[in-house]
Design a protein around this nucleic acid. Structure first.
Lengths: 136, 136
DNA sequence: CCGCATCCCTATAGATACTG
DNA sequence: CAGTATCTATAGGGATGCGG
């Protein structure tokens, strides 16, 4: 069922086989920027993902080594999802998408400001986000 | 039918609504790098897209202003697909995906060499590809 | 509560055959 | 050559159930 056979040897094609859908990168976004880390956090996101879809994406993301499951410090009942380095390294891709969207789509003003701030010193922004995630 | 209602105001979410599927970026790749420009060119790609999917993606890409349809210089029967600037500007995103894939996936040696060459002088590579496409 | 799993139903993706 | 038509498979939405 989770065979995910690759369509070709093309690196782009293989990458899209992993995160080329409408939901995976939104989960990555939540983990990268929005300090979300539990199942219910993701469920509450603006795009309102269905529970079965979320479960299947989390499983796929974990199988592909982009995220990992940990015990939540607050409660035994909770699970904490965290990005691996492989997952964190999707950040530059997301930044380019934001940058493209900033140029061609209509963006809420506050988000627009953040994007342009991040673009100004891209490397600094990347290391900042990365460090933050690694500390946690 | 092509209502493509957006799921949220998030620029990433909106971008994924446009090209966040397993095929659109492969068509963009074909146009950007592989000098493909007709329906049958795309059909022949390694991933072997189905004809109806190709048709629907081309339509969506055109509606979203990423590509445009032109008369083919060789034949009246042919249609030439070309990237708009909005489409060409997806190149930085693709390059980051290639870069990520280069780090984490198993890549054919020749493609790996090309990726790393392009990364060395990224801006030059981008302007080179862009110029080439604009000339045609 | 929390993290799913399951079921049911609909919508979209996709494979294949065929057409203007 | 550039698509449709038709059919089937999978993705996805929404409600609910259930063990820890």
């Amino acid at each position: 069922m989770e065979t995910t056979k690759k369509r070709s040897d093309c690196p782009l094609s293989c990458s899209l086989d992993i995160f080329g859908d409408k939901w995976s990168l939104l989960i990555i976004r939540d983990l990268l920027f929005l300090k979300k880390s539990t199942y219910n956090d993701f469920l509450k996101s603006a795009e309102s993902i269905a529970t079965n879809i979320l479960a299947s994406r989390l499983k796929a993301l974990e199988e592909n080594g982009l995220i990992e499951k940990l015990e939540h410090p607050d409660s035994k009942a909770k699970i904490l999802y965290r990005l691996t380095q492989k997952g964190i390294d999707l950040l530059p891709i997301l930044m380019e998408v934001y940058s493209w969207a900033d140029k061609y789509l209509t963006i809420p003003a506050d988000i627009k400001a953040t994007i342009e701030e991040a673009k100004k010193d891209r490397d600094k922004f990347i290391s900042q986000v990365t460090t933050e995630l690694n500390i946690k």
